[in-house]
Design a protein around this nucleic acid. Structure first.
Length: 614
RNA sequence: GGUGGCAUAGCUCAGCUGGAUAGAGCACCUGCCUUCUAAGCAGGCGGUCCUAGGUUCGAAUCCUAGUGCCAUCACCA
């Protein structure tokens, strides 16, 4: 039984004995470092149910716990805080119970019901940028966390592969491209297409300026620029299935997909199923027609279809244009329904989309609820803050975006410079080194982004490089590498001694003392740092669950940082391999190994790899 | 204007369902590498938790109002 549950029972028991009162709950918190003890029982909240002096009540409870609970070795009361000292044996026992559990912290029996996590969902007219990186890292990580918490997860995205923005790039390429291809220019396909998106905007602005100079009203000029009209015409042709336009569209999208694939691969994210807007944009229409009959929607005189959400404190929202074409909302309705059809085991969905679309998703979920879909109540918008530059918002048309590929290259380069300065990679081949630099560079970037609460905006200053010291990815990777170094030496030193480190049964060196009784009979006790480490390890499973409930990788990042800080302090203060007492040495090596495993597991949830050396 | 989010050290951020003297990192200052990797450890400096009320034994945390920043309210996505 979990210690807190046991203590809760016992506290309730003593209160019932003394006051004939059934406490609804008992509150705990970890004891602050400045006081003696491990777990603190809060007496104040009990005063609502029973009358008395908090110090006295604390004393009564403390005495009872010490007498009745083996794990409680002592206690002290300060004000309304009952600090309980937990016996080393309890912690050792706990550690022995988890040390060989390779999936520690994870729920390995997945539930029947699946959850679909959507992320990335880019437009195919320009390359991915820093904003997409945050989106991708969050989506990937949340999917991994949900999986670890016991959910069956499908990663997906909706690729916005059609629309006027795509036509703009296509038209500009036709106009100014001279038949350029990724091959002929050695450019990534998404970059090439993105260039033409910018080229379109340039030409468009020029035309608008000319018209305004010619005395035309700016608003009219913006709508009537010839190149824009042409793009709109192209969209109509695309919708009509014009062969040439569709062929060009396929070609250019193909270039973009290849480029995206490379970026995703470098970033280390993946997907289980893909949805394309061009396949799904018509789906929602039928649903809207149905909803119209059911009275969920209504038609205005001009033929457009709307939903009235004023009862919910929202506005009216359009779901179909007067010309019968679909809007974004129409398509999202269709896509959601299609996904549940495709995967009947899916009971909920998580949409990883920036907070600028909060309203859109509020409306979408409401519509699906009103349409009577039960699963609509299990839809979540993982709404995250924008990534801003010191100059403000990133704008692709103005070229102020931080490109995803460039950023990854920069980070890798910085990691390489630092590593070379430190010069600890003797014996590594050039490819091994490059792999490591990338691992560290991306570790820094990913951690930097994921440690921040998703809903908060991030200010990214390209002038200041992401740190590699302190609360950073590389710091945690470094600690992992240190641990691996210890484990390598431990094996070299005395393989026999550490047999059970690798999970093999091996011969028991210590005669009657089995691994689960390690140190239990000893008087020496645990070093305070060892105890703190075990306590921190204890928190991992609940942290995974909490992160899953809150869809927050930041909780995992912060947990890992605390664990690693604790380990480094331990590492500095006690000798591991230099310890003479064999049992202590063995415990310390095992502790180190477990910390390493948890770092690896936790970072895996963030999509960050860990190195054996660095 | 309506709605939603955010506001904590010079900077970047933690602070779980209200609990003890509000914590980290960066930056700045001081120590520690002939001993398991110094991308580290130990310590110092640094706070009107946006403001004003309220609830409570107790508020950075909950409620109300205000201020500031951001987003959104399009037959855009």
């Amino acid at each position: 039984m979990n210690l807190e549950t046991l203590l809760t029972q016992k506290v309730k028991e003593v209160i019932f004995n003394e006051f004939s009162m059934e406490l609804p709950a008992v509150e705990f918190q970890p004891t602050r470092k400045d006081f003696e003890g491990d777990i603190t029982v809060m007496v104040f909240p009990m005063l609502r149910h029973i009358k008395g002096n908090p110090v006295k009540i604390g004393e009564q409870i403390g005495a009872f716990l010490k007498k009745e609970v083996d794990a409680v070795s002592d206690y002290n009361v300060i004000q309304g805080f009952l600090n309980v000292v937990i016996d080393d044996a309890y912690y050792l026992d706990f550690f022995n119970g988890i040390k060989n559990d390779s999936a520690y912290g994870f729920v390995t029996e997945l539930g029947k019901e699946g959850v679909m996590v959507e992320y990335s969902s880019p437009n195919t007219n320009k390359p991915l940028h820093l904003g997409h990186i945050r989106n991708n890292l969050l989506g990937y990580s949340v999917a991994e966390i949900l999986k670890a918490s016991g959910k069956k997860v499908y990663k997906t995205q909706i690729i916005n592969d059609r629309g006027i923005h795509i036509c703009k790039s296509m038209l500009a390429w036709q106009r100014f491209g001279n038949g350029e291809t990724p091959e002929s220019t050695s450019l990534k396909g998404d970059k090439l297409v993105g260039n033409y998106y910018v080229a379109f905007d340039k030409a468009y602005k020029k035309q608008v300026a000319q018209k305004i100079a010619g005395g035309i009203d700016p608003k009219v000029a913006e709508k009537e620029a010839p190149i824009l009209l042409e793009a709109q015409e192209m969209l109509q042709k695309w919708e009509a299935g014009d062969e040439q336009v569709v062929a060009l569209w396929k070609t250019m999208n193909g270039w973009v997909y290849k480029g995206f694939e490379e970026t995703y691969k470098n970033l280390g994210v993946d997907f289980d199923t893909l949805y394309y807007e061009s396949d799904t944009y018509l789906l929602g229409k039928d649903v809207v027609t149905e909803g119209l009959q059911k009275g969920v929607f209504y038609r205005k005189d001009d033929g457009s279809v709307w939903i009235d959400l004023t009862d919910e404190g929202l506005d009216e929202k359009i779901v179909l244009r007067s010309d019968g074409t679909a809007v974004y909302m129409t398509q999202d309705i269709g896509t959601a329904i299609q996904r549940i059809k495709d995967r009947p085991d899916v009971g909920g969905m998580v949409y990883t989309v920036g907070n600028e679309q909060d309203y859109h998703f509020k409306v979408l979920f409401l519509i699906l609820k009103k349409l009577g879909y039960e699963w609509a109540q299990s839809l979540y918008h993982l709404s995250y803050g924008m990534v801003d530059l010191p100059s403000g918002k990133m704008k692709s048309r103005e070229g102020t975006v931080v490109d995803a590929d460039d950023l990854m290259i920069d980070m890798t380069r910085t990691a390489a410079e630092i590593s070379e300065d430190l010069g600890k990679l003797e014996g590594y081949s050039e490819t091994e080194k490059q792999d490591l630099y990338k691992m560290i560079g991306l570790g820094a970037l990913k951690y930097y982004i994921l440690k921040v609460d998703p809903k908060k905006r991030i200010l990214f200053n390209p002038e200041e490089s992401v740190d590699f010291q302190g609360n950073t990815g590389p710091f945690i990777q470094y600690t992992y590498a240190r641990i691996q170094s210890i484990l390598r030496k431990a094996e070299e030193l005395d393989l026999q001694d550490f047999d059970d480190l690798t999970g093999q049964t091996g011969n028991d060196l210590h005669g009657a003392v089995g691994p689960n009784e390690l140190l239990l009979g000893q008087t020496a006790g645990l070093h305070p740092k060892e105890k703190e480490l075990i306590k921190q390890l204890q928190l991992f499973p609940e942290t995974v669950q909490l992160a899953a409930e809150n869809l927050s990788p930041a909780l995992i990042a912060n947990y890992t940082y605390d664990l690693v800080k604790e380990f480094n302090s331990f590492y500095q203060q006690v000798s591991i391999l230099g310890e003479e007492d064999v049992e202590k040495k063995l415990l310390r090596v095992q502790l180190s190994r477990k910390v390493g495993e948890v770092i690896k597991s936790a970072f895996g949830l963030l999509g960050i790899e860990v190195p054996d050396r660095m």
